[in-house]
Amino acid sequence: MGLAPVAEHEFGYYSFLRLPAHLDERALVRDAAEAGIFLAPGRLFYCGDAAPCPAVRINVARVDDARFYRFLARAIERQT
């Protein structure tokens, strides 16, 4: 899908997945919730209004679920 983590060498249970610039992270998070997938908008974890890029926080222990990848692929396709 061409997505990459915001920081390559993070450790822990969570990571930030960089989204394409045209993707609306708030809409993506809302659509994910409706599909039963919990994502957190990256901007919630930055001070001020400006996040460095559109991103979502993901739980790395849960990203092996195929539903997550199918959801992301459809969401990216819809918003292009």
Rank of each mutant, 00 (worst) to 15 (best):
G2W: 15
L3A: 11
A4H: 14
A7P: 07
A7H: 14
E8F: 11
E8V: 00
E8H: 10
E8Q: 12
E10F: 03
F11T: 15
F11H: 15
Y13E: 14
S15G: 14
S15H: 14
F16M: 02
L17I: 01
L17A: 02
R18D: 10
R18C: 11
L19K: 04
L19A: 08
A21E: 15
H22W: 05
H22G: 09
L23M: 12
D24P: 12
D24K: 12
D24T: 08
E25F: 12
E25S: 11
R26D: 08
A27D: 15
L28E: 09
V29D: 04
V29P: 01
R30H: 05
A33E: 10
E34G: 13
E34L: 11
F38R: 12
L39H: 00
A40P: 00
P41T: 06
G42I: 00
G42L: 00
G42R: 01
R43S: 01
L44Q: 10
Y46N: 01
C47M: 14
G48S: 02
D49H: 08
D49C: 04
D49F: 05
A50Y: 09
A50T: 15
A51M: 05
P52W: 07
P54A: 03
P54S: 08
A55D: 05
V56W: 04
V56G: 06
R57L: 01
R57F: 00
I58E: 00
I58G: 02
N59R: 06
V60Y: 08
D65M: 09
A66P: 05
R67Y: 00
R70L: 04
F71R: 05
L72V: 01
A73D: 09
R74F: 02
A75H: 05
A75V: 04
A75T: 09
E77K: 15
R78H: 13
T80F: 06
